[in-house]
């Protein structure tokens, strides 16, 4: 999932929304996922995520995210299946392991929740410039710039570190480290020492960023320094109502 948080430029309706609206929509989709235990609603939310991706012109990224999350979900599904017990026993396995009716239902809920709640944040970050997000947090939500900067920098560094790690893996594979092995235990054994160069590079990069921010007058920046306006338009209000409707629907359907 290389570069899955990188900004994808575009001119879609979603691109033009206020960053705050996009953040609210993403968070409300997450909230709806966690409120509901209804499988159909959770599947509908995943489909909504894909529709959002399609509308923003990043369907391929949406599908890539879905594929990646599905792989992780398989492991989580198996674990939940074995460790959640309740209701009728469907299958009895050796070592006193049971697959129960509630285990299956909850495993599905957890996996669908994971996919449904992770996708909107990644999609939102794909169609929002980090600077806009940071500015809106400072001007609209009155968060001190220092903290908004920390948050956006942390997110900006994720793809940088992913890129760095793939470079380190390339360098080590070129030395003969069998990182291309199919044996998962061997692979873990070889990947662990690579944390050293990644850590060193990360610390150096962070130190470099801090110094360059400081020499460019980071401490002089205040809320008033932001010259770009982020007005709330009718479309933003509409999307916020839709977000509220989504949460409300989840509450009604789940009967919370």
């Amino acid at each position: 999932m290389k570069g899955f948080l990188d900004y994808v430029p575009g001119n879609s309706f979603l691109h033009k929304l206020n960053p705050l609206t996009k953040l609210v929509l993403a968070l409300m989709i997450c909230v709806a996922c966690f409120i509901s235990e209804n499988h159909i609603l959770l599947v509908a939310i995943i489909l909504l995520n894909l529709a959002i991706a399609k509308a923003a012109g990043i369907l391929s990224r949406g599908l890539m995210l879905l594929k990646g999350l599905t792989k992780i979900s398989l492991v989580i599904f198996l674990l939940q299946l074995l460790f959640i017990r309740g209701g009728d026993v469907l299958i009895t396995l050796p070592l006193n392991l049971l697959i129960t009716e509630r285990g299956v239902a909850m495993a599905f809920v957890i996996v669908l929740r994971l996919i449904g709640a992770t996708m909107p944040l990644a999609l939102m970050l794909s169609i929002t410039q980090m600077n806009d997000l940071s500015n809106v947090l400072v001007t609209k939500l009155k968060i001190p710039y220092k903290y908004a900067f920390t948050l956006t920098t942390a997110m900006r560094f994720i793809p940088i570190f992913a890129n760095e790690m793939s470079g380190i893996i390339e360098a080590q594979a070129s030395r003969g480290v069998e990182l291309d092995t199919r044996n998962i235990f061997k692979k873990i054994k070889f990947v662990l020492p690579l944390c050293v160069p990644l850590l060193i590079t990360s610390v150096k990069k962070i130190e470099g960023s801090a110094i360059s921010a400081e020499i460019r007058g980071f401490h002089l920046r205040t809320r008033e320094s932001c010259y770009k306006g982020y007005p709330i338009r009718k479309s933003d209000v509409g999307v916020m109502f839709f977000s509220a409707f989504l949460v409300f629907s989840a509450i009604i359907i789940s009967g919370v």
């Binding site: 760095e164 470079g167 380190i168 360098a171 070129s174 030395r175 020492p193 050293v196 590079t201």
Partner: peptide
């Protein structure tokens, strides 16, 4: 043997 531009990606000890 392959020497990369960035030695920090290779050094791990």
């Amino acid at each position: 043997g392959f020497l990369f531009q960035n030695p920090d990606r290779q050094i791990c000890k």
